[in-house]
Design a protein around this nucleic acid. Sequence first.
DNA 1: TTAATTTATTTTGATAATCAAATTATATTT
DNA 2: AAATATAATTTGATTATCAAAATAAATTAA
Lengths: 150, 150
Amino acid sequence: MNNHDAVNEILVRLFANILDIEEKCLKIGEFSDLSISEMHVIENIGINRERTMSDTAKDLRITSGTLTTAVDNLIRKGYVERKRSIEDRRVVIIKLTEKGVAAYSAHEDFHKDMVISALQQLDTKEEELLIKILTDIDVFFKQKYDIGYK
Amino acid sequence: MNNHDAVNEILVRLFANILDIEEKCLKIGEFSDLSISEMHVIENIGINRERTMSDTAKDLRITSGTLTTAVDNLIRKGYVERKRSIEDRRVVIIKLTEKGVAAYSAHEDFHKDMVISALQQLDTKEEELLIKILTDIDVFFKQKYDIGYK
DNA sequence: TTAATTTATTTTGATAATCAAATTATATTT
DNA sequence: AAATATAATTTGATTATCAAAATAAATTAA
């Protein structure tokens, strides 16, 4: 097996496993009534931000209809609140409740913990190479597939 | 921003985009009747391999029932064939058809393209260091989060 | 060698995430 | 004022998924 195949194989496995880890950790934690998708909505709304439905849907690359039902459920569960914009009454503003902020923070802590643990075994030179390679992949995607990054 | 935050940020962005990109490429290509999930089944069955339903489901971390319907659809679309094992008639053997192999190869090309362009700027020594880093991280995740690898 | 148990798969009945298209309400343009 | 455009929701559908029940075959135990 050449190096390209080795890197490809391990990246595929890593990506699959990290998603699994995220889901697993969510399910055993304090906010186990949230799905990964719902957590992504919370992540996107963010702390101290008022977001419109359209902008959030666009960022998450889902339709408005999909976001409407997701937000319905997040409101029912107490993580998000919704109000009409005063300037333009077609627009709906969503923001995190206190509970939503707590969930956001917990998730962020998990991310930090995961990354810090993973990097602990690397020396500075290795860390920098890793960042370089991840950046390259990121740039490659952006250029080649014209993905709308925020 | 320190290295930890840099890696966290870029990982989050990569993860948010990678499945979308994969899906996008799939949808504009020759095998646009395949979903990402279905492609993952094809990827797991592999070329020149006969796989049982159980082993494939375990690898993909989905239930046998889920795999049964996925394979039903892949057979209907002409990518997979299914037969009973002769040694143990409870066991169902699945393998790729010629069309399945073609889809597998096309998907592999996408992955290779991704990795090659990411590795382009590294020399062999750096490539090997990267493989070591990724392997270490992979093993680390396995130990820390007790993920059921194959 | 029958009966009980285990194993491999499929079926069934349910839920979550998603989309496209239709609808509703409001704003903007002609 | 009418026509058009925009923001969000609703509707009706599909796909991916699971847990639990059912089916069929193999293995173990009585």
